[in-house]
Amino acid sequence: MKKNVYRVRTQYIFEGVFDVIAESKEYARQKVLQNCGLVMGGSIHSTLPDDEINWAFSAHPDVRTARITVQEEQTE
């Protein structure tokens, strides 16, 4: 049986909240963009001190697939 290599565009969407202590909405946004993230195969993290941030995220992402294309056709 012939098998092909397919590229499947995929999104893993983790949704949650960061509660941040800041002087304004924009500063709170900047803190999250610059100091918070997700490491593939790791966990959600922040470099902010614990007394400035708290978060809640689901450990189970919403998984969406999109376009699927043949990358390499196999011949026998």
Rank of each mutant, 00 (worst) to 15 (best):
V39H: 06
A22N: 07
D19H: 14
T69E: 13
Q30H: 12
N54C: 09
I68Y: 10
S24V: 01
N54H: 15
G16L: 05
S46Y: 07
F18S: 01
E72G: 02
L38D: 00
I44W: 08
I53Q: 12
D51C: 02
H45I: 01
Q74M: 09
E52Q: 15
A66E: 08
V20C: 14
A22Y: 10
I13Y: 15
D62G: 06
I68Q: 13
S46G: 00
V70D: 05
D51A: 02
E15Q: 13
I44G: 01
E26G: 05
S24G: 00
Y12L: 10
M40D: 03
V39W: 08
V17K: 08
Q30L: 10
Y27Q: 07
T47A: 02
V32D: 09
F14T: 02
K25N: 12
Q71S: 08
K31Q: 14
I13C: 14
R29V: 09
E73R: 13
A66H: 08
G41C: 01
I21R: 06
A56F: 07
Q34R: 11
K25Q: 12
E15R: 14
K31G: 07
R64F: 01
G42Y: 09
E26W: 13
K31D: 08
P61K: 11
E52C: 12
Y27N: 05
D19Y: 14
D51E: 03
N35V: 02
R67D: 06
L38C: 03
D62V: 12
H45E: 02
H45N: 03
E15S: 14
R67L: 09
E26T: 06
K31M: 15
L33F: 11
Q30G: 06
E73H: 10
A66V: 03
N35C: 04
A22K: 09
W55K: 04
R29S: 13
E26L: 10
D62N: 14
Y12G: 03
S58N: 04
H60C: 07
I21P: 02
E72A: 03
M40F: 04
I13R: 15
H45V: 01
Q71D: 09
R29H: 14
D62H: 15
G41W: 06
A59N: 11
A66D: 07
P61Q: 10
F57E: 00
K25S: 11
